[in-house]
Design a protein around this nucleic acid. Structure first.
Length: 984
RNA sequence: GCUGAAGUGGUGGAAUUGGUAGACACGUUGGACUUAAAAUCCAAUGUCCAUUAGGACGUACGGGUUCAAGUCCCGUCUUCAGUACCA
């Protein structure tokens, strides 16, 4: 008896044992350790590294990792030296907020979370090279993040050569010829100075000026301040006017902040998109974000004032159509030029707009509002006076914060002009603008425009710019929407800046003294004075003699100086981590990655991650890579050659109907079919008696019955089975308030929940944990199932019900190799059918992997196993190559069976089977015979039959004769090897 | 509004160059095995009509091109995502 049981056990597919064994084997043998020296071609497969959150992984997280792992394993089979690393983006807000609540140091929280992540990742069997792991919060890592910051500080952007250069070069230009002729990226409004001026400036003054040219600079900027989080947020961290994390309100506030001059790279970031293999959607998102528009800047003189107003326009050809100008209410000239008579109205308007949040302003697009300032500008050509208005449809943050209004050619200007009764001069030939503006620019000629008359858009634009240049009142200009990126955060858990302040001027700490480690603080909150958390640190001053961090009481502003209190944003560490992986951990001292390593791996060949990083991480990484390239530290222009966005796996939330009276829960719950299903409850149904009985026991009177309402509340998906039935006992035990819940079930005693697809989230109780799936079905089942769910890029709901399908497949696969009496595989010669099945599978799987169509490969494997089982195939010549095909997808079972076949070592680098088309050559074809395009029957005919012979064979067939029923076909289409279609 | 993606059975999805629509799987139904259950195996399963044979309809909707359209063209609708008084 015991013996029998034991035998059965060893013959079964014992996935838990197999997976543990092979994971141990891979770890012990460092199977997936990449080498920096290899005769094989290199291939770099990267995942977006995770932030290790306290909640651990849910089934959605591994989707992209599984896809990249399949690809990495496939490339190893194809003879590549594959780098497939993983690490943690371990600085971030959740650990800090947890620290604020509990006092636990974020480093401890992070360490704990990483352990959980690692355990969860390991059990899925990824082929990561963990020896190269990086953590952004590790001082040995952020040392180099600080180092890159210094490189940015020590660089300026030369527009002539289109690259960043050392700031020393700029200094030498200043000291030899001043700044009058430099063409570089810099702040607006820098005074012009000569070489003599420069050399006579104090060091401080020089530093102040240089700061306006550096690629990272301090500036008083209006920032998105989030009071609830106590920090500044980047534009891409704000969604619909509230913080992406937590949904808190965001206000505008002026602060001195570090900024990154990413705008200097706008054009190169745009051009570079054409050289990389990303989806159109993602490239388009970045293009929109960069927001290039070509046009001209035009300077308008203000009557009776020395000031001028500069505007940007994409339509200089419509310059003669200008009938008024509009300034943003925040525009600096508004207060200067407003006439006394208009002062009151203007101030009231400014006050009104200031009160409205960005969000309100955005939501309320329809209302036209504005106020006349009383001032006039002068048209550059006609010299006519032009009214100057203010209006909140003009944004201070775009262009110059002022527009020349051409109501004839712009709908907003048109609406504004109509609303306030301003002239609408017609400047196009033969257009009707009685109802709306003419906004097109093709197939129309300019009119009433002096020297532009009769010209088309292109010529008129050129001529207008030329004439403006002659007047010195304009030039061709390209404008970008891309703003410089604010780089300071008022947080604790981020990289400290390698910066101290001498008389308010920032100084870099020399690279050899890095890293500057995060100081200890007592609390992780901002200080009472509103300084960032680092303001609480007691050991946070820089001693320039000792070159070390010392206690604050030593600050004398002669040799010991205060250190920067802000920390870097989340995207700092993630903007270069892909280079760190290139270097082996043992050789990382003294370099962020050695030249050899950088030269060997170049850039990421395949990057897989979410599309939500389109305007954040993916843009910033490109920016930093270009800077590093310009300064000679790396050799590549772009970090990620090919990028794939995996779709999110959504949760299937479960809801129950809760009965409410007077806004309060009655603690009565109804099966969803009783509310919105076929078993809708009516006062005639027997359920009504049951329900009203409970109403009464809850103290309701008859009149109250009709006032009872229902609402849907989330319930935990683990209480619900695949048929949407609720485990009512589990629900009762969930929370104290449900202990005496009453359930109204359907006639058959079933209580059904309502289902809805939502984002997977703890708060929606729809999170499915991969741990249980791995325990119940195994990692290989999880891997296959996540791929089988649908196309990688698509958003799709998780539904555990279907996992039995792939699990059964693995059992069938196992049974193909192992029977009750042990291994079934032998050296029998393969049959023709065996070979056909194998080679058709090789071809399809190879194509699928290269097209990232992983879902269809899984079907292909199922078909192959179904066919080989039906063929009773036992041939090693077939079954061994089949394992290699499956190994990228289900590596554990593949390794186990491969070793059972008598092989030693891992299957992971065994060559991928060669496809041989000769096995797929057919001698006959089952032709579909169509009549007028409709398939009626099929007919097996030899493959080598000529067109005429096929036609003869088909026409002679009895079913053809029956179909035609005496008619003579008009036409017979024969496509040999494909179809026959009879028309008539 | 603009940009991008997508609409196929009860469900997830397949059909890569126009050529047998619905592969593969889930679910459902029926059957075998079992004292029973689980597991496993077999069969059926787009909708409608028909006892069968077979037929009609069918890839969001309306047109078109073609011997042949899920696939190509024109128009419309819907959903999802990104973005937006961008001058």
């Amino acid at each position: 008896m015991t013996l029998y049981k034991c035998k059965i056990k060893t013959m079964q597919y014992d996935f838990n044992r197999i997976e543990k064994d092979w994971q141990k084997y891979w770890a012990e043998n460092q199977t997936f350790k990449a080498s920096n020296t290899s005769t094989k071609p290199k291939y770099y497969v990267l995942d977006m590294f995770p932030y290790p959150s306290g909640a651990g992984l849910h089934v959605g997280h591994p989707l992209g990792y599984i896809a990249s792992d399949i690809y990495a394993r496939y490339k190893r089979h194809k003879g590549f030296n594959v780098l497939h690393p993983q690490g943690y983006d371990s600085f971030g807000l959740p650990a800090e907020q947890y620290a604020i609540q509990t006092g636990q140091h974020p480093a401890i929280t992070t360490e704990t979370n990483i352990k959980t992540y690692r355990r969860q990742l390991d059990q899925i069997g990824f082929s990561f090279d963990w020896s190269r792991e990086v953590r952004t919060s590790n001082p040995e890592y952020y040392k180099w993040t600080q180092w890159i910051f210094i490189q940015l500080f020590e660089s300026y952007y030369c527009n002539d050569d289109n690259k960043a250069k050392a700031i020393e070069e700029l200094i030498s230009i200043f000291s030899s010829e001043g700044n009058a002729n430099v063409n570089v990226a810099c702040d607006d409004g820098i005074e012009i100075f000569s070489a003599e001026d420069w050399n006579s400036f104090s060091t401080e003054k020089q530093q102040e000026i240089l700061l306006k040219y550096r690629l990272t600079y301090l500036a008083e900027t209006e920032v998105n301040w989030c009071p609830a989080l106590g920090t500044v947020l980047a534009n891409d961290e704000i969604v619909n006017g509230v913080s992406e994390r937590g949904g808190h309100t965001v206000v505008r506030k002026k602060m001195t902040q570090w900024s990154m001059r990413i705008s200097a790279y706008a054009e190169r970031l745009l051009q570079g998109l054409d050289t990389i293999d990303w989806t159109d959607a993602l490239k388009e998102t970045q293009r929109n974000w960069i927001g290039k528009s070509v046009g001209a800047s035009v300077t308008f003189n203000v009557n009776a004032h020395e000031d001028t107003i500069e505007v940007f326009t994409t339509r200089p050809d419509t310059i003669f159509g200008v009938s008024f100008m509009t300034l943003a209410p925040e525009h600096e000239l508004v207060s200067k030029i407003t006439t006394p008579e208009q002062k009151e109205a203007v101030n009231a308007y400014i006050e009104k707009t200031a009160k409205r949040s960005e969000r309100d302003r955005m939501a309320d697009v329809k209302t036209i509002s504005g106020v006349f300032t009383g001032a006039f500008a002068e048209h550059p050509f006609t010299k006519e006076p032009i009214q100057i208005w203010i209006g909140d449809y003009v944004l201070a943050s775009y262009g110059t914060g002022a527009v020349m209004a051409v109501p004839c050619g712009d709908q907003r200007d048109y609406d504004f002009a109509k609303h306030f009764g301003i002239d609408i001069p017609i400047i196009f030939e033969g257009v009707d603008i009685s109802e709306e503006a003419f906004t097109g620019k093709d197939n129309v000629k300019i009119a009433n425009s002096d020297f532009l008359n009769g010209m088309n858009y292109k010529r008129a634009t050129k001529r207008a710019i030329y004439e403006l240049e002659q007047l010195g009142q304009g030039e061709g200009k390209t404008n970008y929407r891309l703003r410089d990126a604010v780089f300071s955060r008022q947080r604790y858990w981020g990289e400290p800046f390698p910066v101290y302040y001498v008389n308010g001027m920032p100084q870099m700490i020399a690279a050899e003294h890095l890293p500057i480690q995060l100081p200890e603080v007592e609390k992780y909150l901002p200080t009472e004075e509103g300084e960032p958390p680092l303001g609480r640190a007691e050991v946070w001053a820089w001693d320039t003699n000792l070159n070390t961090v010392v206690t604050n009481d030593k600050v004398n502003n002669e040799t010991v100086f205060p250190l920067e209190l802000n920390t870097m944003p989340g995207w700092a560490g993630s903007s270069w981590y892909f280079f760190r992986y290139m270097e082996e951990a043992a050789n990382r001292d003294g370099v962020f990655a050695s030249k050899d390593a950088l030269d060997y791996w170049e850039n990421v060949d395949l990057y897989i991650g979410g599309a939500e990083h389109a305007t954040g991480h993916l843009l910033y990484s490109r920016f930093w890579v270009k800077l590093l390239k310009d300064r000679g530290f790396v050799n590549v222009d772009e970090p990620f050659k090919k990028l794939i966005n995996q779709g999110m796996i959504l949760g299937t939330s479960a809801f129950v109907y809760e009965a409410l009276f007077d806004e309060k829960s009655l603690n009565i719950y109804l099966s969803s079919n009783l509310i919105d299903g076929q078993n809708y409850i009516t006062s005639e149904s027997s359920k009504w008696t049951e329900l009203t009985g409970i109403y009464k026991s809850r103290g309701l009177s008859e009149e109250d019955f009709s006032k009872v309402t229902h609402r849907l509340i989330h319930c935990d998906v683990s209480f619900v089975n695949a048929s949407d039935e609720l485990n009512t006992e589990a629900f009762k035990n969930w929370r104290a308030e449900y202990t005496d819940a009453e359930f109204i079930k359907e006639e058959n005693g079933i209580f059904k929940v309502k289902r809805e697809v939502e984002k997977m989230s703890k708060s929606k109780y729809n999170v499915v944990n991969p741990d249980n799936i791995v325990k119940d079905y195994g990692a290989d089942s999880l891997r296959l199932y996540e791929m089988f769910l649908g196309p990688l890029e698509q958003y799709k709901p998780w539904n555990t019900a279907g996992i039995t399908g792939v699990h059964n497949f693995l059992k069938k696969l196992w049974k193909l190799y192992v029977g009750e009496n042990g291994l079934k595989v032998n050296t029998t010669a393969p049959t023709k059918d065996n070979l056909k099945t194998l080679h058709k599978t090789i071809k399809k799987v190879q194509e699928d992997i290269e097209n990232f169509s992983f879902n269809t490969s899984v079907s292909t494997f199922m078909i192959a196993v179904n066919e080989l089982t039906a063929q009773k195939c036992t041939s090693k010549a077939i079954l061994e190559p089949l394992l290699i095909l499956i190994s990228p997808y289900a590596p554990h079972i593949a390794e186990e069976l491969y070793s059972k076949l008598g092989n030693t070592g891992s299957i992971s680098t065994v060559a991928f089977p060669e496809f041989n088309a000769s096995h797929l050559v057919e001698s006959s074809k089952n032709y579909p015979i169509s009549f007028n395009g409709k398939m009626r029957f099929t007919l097996e005919l030899p493959m080598d039959l000529s067109k005429d012979d096929i036609e003869k064979a088909v026409m002679a067939h009895e079913k053809t004769i029956a179909q035609l029923d005496g008619r003579t076909p008009k036409k017979i289409i024969v496509v040999p090897g494909k179809i026959v279609n009879i028309v008539g």
